[in-house]
Design a protein around this nucleic acid. Sequence first.
RNA 1: UGUCCGAUGGUGUAAUGGUAGCACAGAGCUCUUUGGAGGCUUUAGUCAUGGUUCGAAUCCAUGUCGGACAACCA
Length: 601
Amino acid sequence: MSLENKDSAAPAPIAPSDFIRDIVAAHVAENKYPRIHTRFPPEPNGYLHIGHAKSICLNFGIAHEFGGICNLRMDDTNPAKEDIEYVESIQADVNWLIGGWAEDQLGLKPKGLAPEVIAGEGKRDFYLPAVTKSEIENRQAETFEPFYASSYFDQIYDYAEELIEKGKAFVCDLTPDQTDEYRRNGLESPFRNRTVEENLDLFQRMKKGEFTDGIRTLRAKIDASAPNIWLRDPLLYRIKHVEHHQTGSQWCIYPMYDFAHCLSDYIEGITHSICTLEFEVHRPLYDWILESLNLPRTLPHQYEFARLSLGYTVMSKRKLMQLVEEKLVTGWDDPRMPTICGIRRRGVTAVALRAFAYNIGITKYNGITDVSVLEHAIREDLNKRSLRRLAVLRPIKVVITNVPEGKVEELDAVNNPEDETAGKRKIPFSRELFIERDDFQEVPPPKFFRLKPGGEVRLKYAYIIKCDEVIKDASGNLTELRCTADLDSKTGGATSARKVKGTIHWVSATHAVDAEVRLYDRLFTVPEPDADGDFKQHLNPHSLEVITAKLEPSLKDATFEARYQFERLAYFALDKDSGSKLIFNRTITLKDAWAKEAQKS
RNA sequence: UGUCCGAUGGUGUAAUGGUAGCACAGAGCUCUUUGGAGGCUUUAGUCAUGGUUCGAAUCCAUGUCGGACAACCA
């Protein structure tokens, strides 16, 4: 038993199974591809949130389970909305989430490298293979970066010309409103039948910058009256005289998502292009573009799954942006935000977030996942790893009258009952203590097992005490409790086996250290904040309470990496704002059976 | 309205023609120097109607309900 270490004691993780993994497994069984290759392709126009975490875990999970690679790719085809700030945060968040798990599956590219042209059977081909961590270690002279759709702008432009030459694309002069109306009504654009030469000339002049924004577009020539609107001659390129965070002022035309995405997948050699349900109707276009070009390598395929909806939170980038910009939270990494950086700052570990992603599964059904599933994954992880500490959030003073002034005892305390290897520490005990205000009631309700006048309670790791006297100030406020300790009741003592119903936490008043403690709660008060349009009216006014707490002295040495359980209260993590002053964030409360019991009566 | 997709306890998911299972939530018991954790027990489900079949959550038909999309966004 004692030989068990943490790893062997943990149950072997069960490999998840879902309809996408079933497809991949079948492909592996029939050797359809030399290697499974997925990708995670966020647009750098906002911070990653827990919904992205689901996607990251799926894509990296598949690569991890099937011996493949997952590229990180910035889907940066709309410079008007994107920013380098987001590029950087996305990289940090992905690295954190896959850290210690699927780092070896992360596909990157040498900085600045563009797709190479591979000639074969008279066909040109653009290919940009990924480099993984193990290969990077042998190439230390180079630096590596994520993939960017923008680094394929040259190739995507070439493919557009090829489409024009094949008579499968045309330059259209309709205004945005007209285009919209024509497409809605299934009508062909009057510019649909321009000659290849004219189309080529116009497209090249679009690239040169001869036209202003919105004047012309490049459109695919498919079927203006197709039942699927995405096949009604969709836009491929638009004019945007906007600086791009990666390509600067090199381009004034930018490819649309549908055109850039399938080609980016192809260029990177992606086999399984996994996205959310709203792209399901785009799949015929995805396939049409790839099949219309003369592409020599195996084509990628798109698969769709349901995005995550979580109770008591909003997930859309627009709404999260609103919370940040209107200063309803302190920033993207506010611990109340469902962003990956917010969740991380709150104290949740990557292990817990991954466990959550595994537990919720992958389907095509749009449901709302109960937050309790997330909370359970967090508690389960934190219970195993947290160092137990004694801390009093809302103190009341207790004087142990039969302990002499100035006497200090060092008591043994277990760091983590779930993990013997975490060891023990000493905590000081003295005549004056703080206990939690909630742990004393002058007129206790039924089944209240804590301290009450004339009643006894165990001080965790210390003595059984009895409350003799309740001291109040002139206006009747409780100021102090005077108690006597059973000095034989400490661990190993003659009366240590005495049963008392309650055990409470405490800190020695003279030794306690002060800390700012941020008590976070759900950001919204209702399960579906955006159900009726105005999500902001459901903001929880008590989502943050800041208090000064009394901590046991060992917490002076708290680290950012460690997780703490303030016993009987909640899990906490040191906040990044901590400096000379300690600041703890409450990640999540312990389950509180008493709160439930108290509510009954 | 059109196209596409979906429907299994309160919630999320398994069962791929052969015993409807798991997790969360709920209830109860037990244990406990954390009213935590753990252990045990338990409540509760195949959208509807037909059909195929020895046998249907699964296959077929029709219907109902729900969702996504219909940006020079992704």
